[in-house]
């Protein structure tokens, strides 16, 4: 019973995901107005030759902050896992 259900779930997911290659064309993006703005203005506004960097740090700099914070969070979490348990009464 469980196996049949699992198989059905996977079939449906395959079918659903196949909508992606069926409707999105590889190699010719549907629209590109936002990216054309970046390509056209990146050099003059952010003064960087590498458009990806100018997006990462200028246009979408806040995302990058969040992402650094994710790394920081992971480090703090890992430190929490491997902390020494001396001192302090735990449950």
């Amino acid at each position: 019973m469980k196996k049949i259900l699992t198989a059905i779930i996977f079939l449906v997911l395959v079918a659903g995901l196949c909508a992606i290659p069926a409707f999105l064309a590889f190699g010719e993006p549907a629209g590109s107005d936002m990216d054309q703005y970046f390509i056209a203005h990146g050099q003059s506004e952010a003064a960087a030759n590498n458009i990806v960097t100018s997006i990462v740090f200028d246009y979408r700099g806040f995302d990058t902050l969040g992402e650094s914070v994710v790394l920081f969070t992971a480090v703090v979490g890992v430190g929490l896992m491997f902390r020494s348990m001396k001192g302090g009464n735990e449950e």
């Binding site: 993006p29 990216d35 990806v52 990462v56 995302d63 992402e67 650094s68 969070t73």
Partner: peptide, 18 residues
């Protein structure tokens, strides 16, 4: 298009943190 590359950079670092 440059935007997906920027997004993917973020996503990779999130992946290693995860």
């Amino acid at each position: 298009l440059p935007t997906p590359q920027a997004l993917t950079l973020t996503s990779i670092v999130i992946g290693v943190a995860t």
